[in-house]
């Protein structure tokens, strides 16, 4: 009887050990991540949302991303060390800028800090995804996201590059993306000429309304936000002049989330730009034919 009891105990402890080892393996394979950067939230939301134990409070704001509800279900943080210590994630993941005061504190507590650099080109973006993929042990999935993006951009490029469209992406407060900026790389990849780069803007630049009108872009891509309330910074893209100025295409609104972080949502932005250009061209050719008749 006693022997049976010991055997049963042995089996139980072996089972518990196996389970704990497997649990440990699973934990080793799936490191928990606390994100302190909105772009990291979004990239992780596409790559490995199950690994996220916390996202920034910004990801709980209204958003047009398909992963928005997933991110909203994950607890939010404000990038405080107290929150990091409470959650004890395997990795604290940050962007290149911001959270600079948090970095030394996280390291002081011997926790892992991974910093995803701000991409300036598609190659940079691939490196960022690769770094993130390595960190969460999902390099293949990360590489697949990059190749899907590249393939889609090439497809759009094939459709609209010959139209020679000169466009300008207009962000909140009149910020525009010039050469060496990721939004510039995006336009280049889909076959659209960036007016800001054409005008010699390097990195981020700010444009006033008069200059913008004089640059005569064919197409204005207005970066829109889905926040519940107004702000002057985001409202000025509604200036009546931007709609009344003569241009080849009507202005096009693109949700900020689609363009900001180099996620799969960029496919939606590329598709929207292509659809807008092609629809307009079709309309123009139909009206030309009607005129000829």
């Amino acid at each position: 009887m006693l022997v049976k009891a010991f055997r049963a105990l042995g089996v139980l402890s072996a089972l518990t050990f196996t389970l704990s080892v497997n649990g440990g393996d699973a934990r080793a394979a799936e490191p928990t991540v606390m994100s302190v950067n909105q772009c990291v939230d979004q990239m992780m939301g596409y790559l490995a949302p199950e690994n996220l134990v916390s996202v920034t409070w910004l990801s709980h704001q209204p958003s047009e991303l398909e992963i928005a509800s997933t991110l909203r279900d994950i607890p939010a943080n404000f990038g405080f060390i107290e929150q990091v210590l409470e959650l004890r994630p395997d990795i604290v993941m940050a962007g290149q800028y911001g959270a600079s005061s948090l970095k030394p504190l996280v390291r002081k507590f011997n926790m892992r800090w991974v910093e995803i650099p701000l991409p300036q080109s598609l190659d940079d973006l691939a490196s960022s995804w690769s770094l993130m993929g390595e960190a969460v042990r999902k390099p293949e999935q990360a590489a697949s996201i990059v190749s899907r993006l590249r393939a889609y951009f090439a497809q759009v490029h094939g459709k609209i590059a010959d139209k020679q469209v000169r466009a300008l992406i207009l962000n909140a407060n009149g910020w525009i993306a010039g050469e060496g900026n990721f939004q510039d790389a995006f336009l280049d990849a889909i076959g659209v000429i960036n007016v800001a780069s054409e005008q010699g803007v390097q990195g981020w630049g700010q444009v006033d309304l008069e200059t913008l009108v004089r640059w005569r872009p064919d197409l204005l891509l207005m970066v829109s936000n889905s926040y519940d309330s107004e702000a002057l910074a985001t409202n000025w893209v509604e200036h009546p002049l931007l709609k009344r100025r003569p241009s080849r295409f009507e202005p096009l609104y693109i949700p900020a989330d689609w363009l900001s972080c180099g996620t799969l949502a960029m496919k939606l932005a590329a598709q929207k730009v292509a659809d807008h250009i092609l629809a307009h061209e079709r309309k123009a050719s139909v009206s030309e034919t009607a005129d000829d008749l």
């Binding site: 910004l58 936000n225 926040y227 519940d228 309330s229 702000a231 910074a233 985001t234």
Partner: peptide, 13 residues
Amino acid sequence: MAPNPFAVQDILF
């Protein structure tokens, strides 16, 4: 405290 995070940039205005 405004719901739009860009509102902070309007303080100067």
